[in-house]
Amino acid sequence: MEEPQRGIRAVHSESTITVYQAYPPDIGLPAAREGRFPAAWKRDRMTWIKPSFLWMMYRCGWGAKAGQETVLAVEISRDGFEWALRHACLSSYVSGVHPDRAAWQRELKRAPARVQWDPERDLRLQPLPYRALQLGLSGEAVRRYAEEWTVTIRDVTPLAHEIRALVSGGDLDSAARLLPRERPYPLGDGPDGLLAHLQG
């Protein structure tokens, strides 16, 4: 089955969806241990969450990039995730979605979330012909994410390292078997779809 150009693939249950972030150990380790973000985690800054494990691996270099050594799987409520999507603005101007560039800039300043689409990645972290979601949270959305939406936080750095070692050794089949089982996230169709307001 052909992948939609801009679909969301994720690990999800009836009530939650798993997203990924990477932090330095002084943030990531306490977050995983306590199941919530520590006081040192900045609630007044934008934070980006990624439903795609392999896109996160591309971004953090399998947990090897400075400041991104601890990879977290953050399970959040679907209600919260969908609230963020419904209140999101596109991260860049798209003719046909916004009346003009000024209108987009006004919306971007006002929106508590922003949607960005980047090429999905394969096991070798090479780009695929379809896109993965990055969801940026700011203001009210950041506070809700940290204080209301988060259900569990797990340290998946060992998994990242294990998969990377298998890929480096050329055992892509074994690496693929360890990947989180991501499947299409239901977005709904027509004017009531979760991303309808972001499409021209």
Rank of each mutant, 00 (worst) to 15 (best):
P127G: 11
L198W: 01
L125H: 08
W117M: 07
G169K: 01
R121L: 08
Q105W: 04
P158T: 05
F53E: 02
P112C: 12
G35A: 09
R86F: 04
V142C: 12
F53K: 03
S91A: 15
E14K: 08
P25C: 15
S92D: 14
T18M: 03
G139T: 06
W104M: 09
I49K: 04
C89F: 00
R114D: 08
M57G: 04
P51G: 08
L128I: 04
S92I: 01
A84F: 01
M57E: 13
V97K: 14
R101Q: 15
G193L: 07
V71M: 07
A103K: 11
G193C: 11
P4D: 10
L179M: 11
E3G: 00
K50D: 04
D173W: 02
A165G: 03
G7N: 08
E75D: 10
Q21A: 06
F37Q: 05
R114P: 00
L85K: 09
H161W: 07
P186S: 15
R45F: 10
E140W: 00
Y23N: 09
V71K: 01
V156L: 06
A113D: 07
L195I: 12
L187H: 03
F81N: 09
L128F: 03
S168R: 10
A31E: 06
M56C: 14
G188D: 13
L54R: 05
L195F: 05
L195M: 13
L166Y: 01
R114I: 00
A141D: 03
D79R: 14
E140P: 00
A88S: 15
V74Q: 01
E147A: 13
W55G: 04
L29T: 13
Y23G: 01
R6D: 09
S52H: 05
L54S: 11
G28T: 12
D26T: 07
G35M: 06
